[in-house]
Simulated assay, not measured.
Amino acid sequence: MRIAEQVTFGGSALDRADALRTDPAALAAARADPRARAVALWRGKPLLAGARRDRLARLPLGHPALATAATDLLLGCEAGAAVFAADLSAWVPPEGVPETLGAFADPSEQRHPALPADHAFAELRTHMVALAPRDAELAATARGLLGWHRSHGFCARCGAPSAAERAGWMRRCTACGAAHFPRTDPVAIMLVTRGDHALLGRSPGFPEGMYSLLAGFIEPGETVEAAVRREVAEESGIRVGRVGYMASQPWPFPASLMIGCHAEAVSAEIRVDPTELEDALWITRRELQDVFAHAHPRLSAPRPGAIAEFLLRAWLADRLD
């Protein structure tokens, strides 16, 4: 697919500076460089700047807001200068922790007193389409890496505490010495078509009216193509023939890689599994135009910036090649 890397979180060609991860002296020099910066997050929400929250903030490592935050996770380099991730989750905003934190859509913002007025911690899913590709990739990488460290503090082999190494890209068990690396869970997401129709489904947790593409985790010992056929059959009863790869998207909510595929249906009758979906339906290209124009009487589109929206817009524009 020629436009595959135009998907959100892709295509910025970030230099991930792998050589620095295993070179303590070079890493220390990179940290001491006055050009080094930190991307700050609070409980998974990146620090964004601007009235429209359309820029990822980068703070000098000596900034007062980072006084109590660890900045030992290397994200990569920009123009020869290192960029680190800083976790400010221990900070408690004056207004407290919002009830919407972690919800499908968290509209709340948190402003740190040591930062400019146009800086705020905001939900990445809400603002990801406004960010430049490099900002989006850095934010996704920082969110995924910090989330992995929070949930993998103990060895999966023996249960003892583990400690970060390789500038945050590995954890080593303090007892048995086992090495653990950041986790990414592969998920197949499918644009299923039959002639001029595409298959959409609605999960129980979606906002009212929202429909999207079917998706599911790839199981051990399973190819991507097999996962597509299995998930579509399990969720909707539709049988699928040819399957082709289209594009991928890192999805750090919390740790998935969405593998976008085009699948050709060889049956049409829908039989929804109610444990997986509330509803599923076939939609025509003309109806999908109305959905994206916010003119459909019943359906609303997938979240902007998500690979489901990207694949559907590509199908609508006949750009699947």
Rank of each mutant, 00 (worst) to 15 (best):
G76T: 06
G76Y: 03
G80W: 06
G80H: 01
A82H: 03
A82M: 04
A82N: 02
V83S: 06
A85K: 01
D87A: 03
L88G: 09
S89H: 03
S89D: 01
S89N: 03
W91Q: 00
V92T: 15
V92A: 12
P94K: 07
V97R: 15
P98N: 05
E99V: 15
L101W: 07
L101M: 06
A103M: 09
A103V: 00
A103H: 06
A103G: 09
A105V: 14
D106M: 03
D106L: 05
P107Q: 09
S108Y: 05
S108R: 02
H112Q: 11
H112W: 08
P113V: 03
A114F: 04
L115C: 10
P116C: 11
P116L: 10
A117L: 13
A120R: 05
F121I: 07
F121N: 05
A122I: 04
L124S: 01
R125N: 10
R125C: 11
H127L: 01
V129D: 10
V129C: 09
A130V: 09
L131A: 03
L131K: 03
L131F: 04
A132E: 15
A132V: 13
A132I: 10
R134K: 11
D135Y: 03
D135N: 08
A136H: 05
E137K: 01
L138W: 04
L138F: 04
A139L: 00
A142Y: 08
A142R: 05
A142C: 03
R143N: 09
R143I: 06
G144Y: 10
L145P: 02
G147H: 02
W148N: 06
W148M: 04
H149L: 08
H149K: 04
H149A: 07
S151E: 15
S151D: 13
H152Y: 05
G153Q: 07
C155T: 13
C155E: 08
A156S: 14
A156F: 12
R157N: 14
R157A: 15
C158S: 07
C158I: 06
G159R: 04
A160L: 00
A160G: 09
P161T: 14
S162E: 12
S162A: 15
A163L: 12
A163T: 13
A163F: 09
A164E: 15
A164T: 11
E165P: 15
E165R: 14
G168A: 04
W169R: 06
R171L: 10
R171Y: 06
R172H: 07
R172P: 11
C173S: 08
T174Q: 14
T174V: 13
A175P: 12
C176W: 07
A179P: 09
H180A: 14
T184G: 12
P186H: 02
P186N: 07
A188S: 14
L191Y: 02
L191F: 05
R194F: 03
G195H: 05
D196H: 13
D196E: 15
H197S: 12
H197P: 08
H197W: 12
L199D: 00
L200S: 06
L200N: 04
R202G: 00
R202P: 01
R202F: 00
S203K: 12
S203R: 14
P204R: 05
G205Y: 09
